[in-house]
């Protein structure tokens, strides 16, 4: 049986941080802050967060901050958006450094994007998607500012995106997709609203995502992909149906997607690795209780000890 190449993944993540000039890094340049969150969380799950210069990381995150509105961009010079504001807040809380934030201002930016029907726009340009509902709710919860939004309306909007297969889509009528399901289930979990979910119906749809090769796909009749180890599995755990899949087969699938020479994890065996799939692979293994990894919280997508620190510190 394969084993987790933890040290090589640490090296890989640190190398990605330095590499900025090849085509692949440039294409991802505008969402560098997502990459930072994926990389840093992976390091923390591997007990290696101290490999990075914390002050440098925090000061770079703050260069992505837009003081005029309170949001964060995906990289220095890029526009603010909920997707990147959540990553910024997650990175800061990982380092226990929320005190560098103007919490009032950031949470006003987030809550200001709620629409009359309870949905959230991703930024000032108005694209609506349940992904943004998750970003907003997760972010405000970490900042202890849930009272800034109309939670009931936010929940009702997410419920209006529920489909007849038990899953959720981007907007009402949108097809169920495991990534989207994670966002909706995560947001409902954080708002204590899981009673809106038909757990057996959704659980069956989710557990049927396991393919013959042991990996999970994101929709029926699609190929397995390591990132769904996170999206599907975290949703199954939140609704307490994770025992409906074969965990050891999934562990093997993820381990087979590692680049055992240079580190990193890819979407499928023998494909090119990237930091996104490295995070979802390691976080998936953490949810599967792979030995040596810190446990992950399935709703906040952060290590459990970090989440406990947010909510149980007096």
């Amino acid at each position: 049986m394969e084993k987790l190449e933890g040290e090589k993944h640490v090296k890989y993540i640190l190398s990605v941080e330095k590499r900025k000039d090849d085509f692949e890094s440039l294409v991802m340049d505008h969402l560098r802050i997502n990459g930072a969150y994926w990389g840093l969380t992976t390091l923390d799950l591997l007990h290696k967060l101290d490999c990075v210069d914390q002050e440098e990381a925090v000061s770079w995150v703050m260069q992505c901050y837009h003081e005029d509105c309170g949001g964060f961009g995906g990289n220095v010079g890029h526009d603010p958006h909920l997707l990147y504001t959540l990553s910024a807040v997650q990175i800061l809380v990982l380092f226990d450094k929320l005190d560098v934030l103007d919490v009032e201002k950031v949470s006003n930016y987030v809550s200001g994007l709620q629409n009359e029907d309870g949905s959230f726009s991703g930024d000032m340009w108005g694209e609506i998607d349940t992904r943004f509902s998750y970003c907003a709710i997760c972010c405000l919860s970490i900042l202890h500012r849930m009272d800034k939004i109309n939670v009931e309306k936010a929940v009702n909007y997410i419920v209006s995106c529920k489909n007849l297969d038990g899953g959720f889509g981007c907007t009402p009528g949108g097809e169920s997709h495991a990534g989207q399901i994670f966002c909706c289930i995560g947001a409902l979990a954080i708002t204590g609203s899981l009673h809106h979910v038909d757990k057996d119906l959704l659980g069956w749809w989710l557990c049927e995502r396991q393919c013959k090769d042991g990996g999970l796909n994101g929709r029926p009749e699609k190929f397995a992909d390591v990132c769904y180890s996170w999206w599907v599995l975290s949703s199954l755990i939140i609704i307490d149906r994770a025992h409906w899949i074969d965990k050891s087969k999934l562990i093997n699938f993820i381990l087979n997607c590692q680049d055992k020479e240079k580190g990193g994890i890819s979407d499928r065996p023998d494909n090119a690795v990237d930091v996104f799939h490295t995070y979802f692979g390691v976080a998936g293994l953490s949810l599967l209780e792979y030995p040596g990894l810190k446990p992950t919280d399935p709703a906040y997508a952060l290590p459990v000890d970090v989440v406990n620190r947010i909510f149980f510190r007096k």
């Binding site: 939140i238 994770a242 709703a299």
Partner: peptide, 14 residues
């Protein structure tokens, strides 16, 4: 990993 974490009332789920 506690699979009941979000089915049980807690401060994490407000």
């Amino acid at each position: 990993i506690d699979t009941k974490r979000y089915l049980c009332s807690s401060p994490m789920s407000h």
